[in-house]
Simulated assay, not measured.
Amino acid sequence: MSHEHAPPAHPRTLRLRPAVIGLLVVAAVTAAIGLALRAHDYHQLVKQVDAEAIPTVALAAPLGSMGAHTMTLPGHIDAWISAPIHAQVSGYVKSWNKDIGSHVEAGETLAVIDTPELDQQYEQAKAVLVRAQANAQLAKVTSQRWQHLLSSNSVSKQEADEKASEAAVAGANVLSAKADLDRLAALEAFRNVTAPFAGTVTARNTDIGDLVTADSQSALPLFTVADTDKMRLYVAVPQRYASSIRPGMTVSLTVPDHPGKSYQGTLIGSSDAVSQASGSLLAQFEVANDNGKLLPGDYADVQLPLATSQAVTSVPSTVLIFRAQGPQIAVLGPGNKVVMRDVHIAMDLGGALEIDRGLQPDDRIIDNPPDSLAAGDTVRVASGKESSHGDE
């Protein structure tokens, strides 16, 4: 009986099986390491993107003590005295002696008006006076004679009284003629147009040969004379700061045509009323003009010292956000979270804003906030830009 034996396993196949398993294990470990590295890189990338998504902001620098400050307001400079000189008599301009820019003394002749019609009236008035004086003299002599005749009963008393009355009427006619002559003499004096006070001629609106009419409402003044040794400064002060206008206060002012030069003005009065049209109080200041550099009509930038209420916070204008909710300011809250504050602007001073509602004294205000900034956003404070308050 024969027995068949199974052939023995191939020794090479037995040797390959552990190697394949090892390779599979290495591949699995390598894949796991690769996946772990990719996951780590992904998480790092997410963190980096999230970190870059957090906006970096700067905090507004403090503006210093706000117990008092100055506000720049427009002002208008005018002459201390300015007088338009009109013709008091009708006639033709015979000559003019002073032009614009000329300095004149009080009573100095500016122009001469030729008045032929007035001259004729004056001569006629003198003749009327002479005739009235002659009539009065005759009536007086006649009255005296009739009084002598009355003493001898040669005339009646009534006739003597009539002659006395005629003498009195003649005397009154003399007074009337003399008054009319004096009036015309006064008008003759107005042929010479004179300066009412010492000053500078700022306008000349006439020339030789011009016809001028007295008491014309539409006629331009022949001359304008202004006293500019000192000037008046007018400033419209907003109603909110009307209480800061106090007697004796001084202001500093500059004019565009003299850059770098500052002038001082002293309060001499105010309107003591707020204009309904502008909502402002008109204040008047006196400004010395010894060198004559200030001109009537000059525009001035006036630095007005104003006392500010303790409840008002002054911030740079760059912190303001204008949105549908109205004016807002972004402040830094706990955990560097953005908090939006609705504020009320008491006064816009150009580079600064005065806020009387909505801010707290210890608020950390974000300067130049991005347009996309919203309440609750986490922000990063730029290095070296955080205020002394530190993190909440």
Rank of each mutant, 00 (worst) to 15 (best):
H69W: 08
L45A: 15
R15W: 07
T378L: 13
S314T: 13
T194C: 08
I100K: 03
P327T: 11
T56A: 11
Y42C: 08
I81M: 09
P7K: 14
G326D: 04
A87N: 07
M347E: 14
A58I: 12
Y263C: 08
Q264M: 08
K385Q: 15
A242V: 02
V169M: 11
S65L: 07
D182W: 04
Q147E: 13
I245N: 00
D78F: 01
S2M: 11
L16T: 00
S102R: 04
H5V: 14
I355P: 06
I365G: 11
E105K: 13
D348H: 10
P221H: 06
H76D: 09
Y263T: 09
Q217M: 12
L63W: 06
D207C: 01
S271D: 15
T308C: 02
Q303W: 05
A79Q: 02
G376D: 04
N97G: 08
I54N: 03
E386W: 04
H86D: 04
T70I: 05
D50H: 12
A79G: 06
T266I: 09
A186I: 00
G34W: 01
A68V: 02
L138Q: 14
Y92D: 03
T194W: 04
A219R: 02
V29A: 00
V93F: 02
L294W: 00
D377P: 05
K163D: 06
A58P: 05
K140C: 06
L222C: 01
P196T: 04
F190V: 01
N289E: 05
Q239S: 12
P116R: 02
A53P: 04
E166R: 12
V49L: 14
D119F: 01
E4T: 13
G260C: 10
P327V: 10
P256R: 07
Q124G: 07
A198C: 09
E52H: 13
E108N: 02
H148I: 05
V331K: 03
E354K: 00
S152H: 07
A307T: 01
I21P: 00
P247K: 05
S143A: 15
V130P: 10
I365Y: 13
R191G: 10
V49S: 12
G350K: 06
E117N: 11
Q264L: 08
N336C: 11
A58M: 14
A36F: 05
R357V: 14
V57A: 09
S82M: 05
T109D: 09
L129I: 02
A189M: 02
D377L: 01
K178S: 14
Y42M: 10
K337V: 10
V89I: 12
A79K: 01
V343W: 06
I321T: 12
H258V: 10
A61Y: 05
D348T: 04
R12G: 06
R15V: 09
G67H: 08
N135K: 11
S383W: 03
G384S: 09
A226I: 01
K178E: 15
H86I: 02
P116M: 04
E354S: 03
R246P: 01
D180S: 14
A179D: 08
V338R: 00
Q264V: 09
A83G: 05
V212Q: 06
I355H: 10
K163L: 12
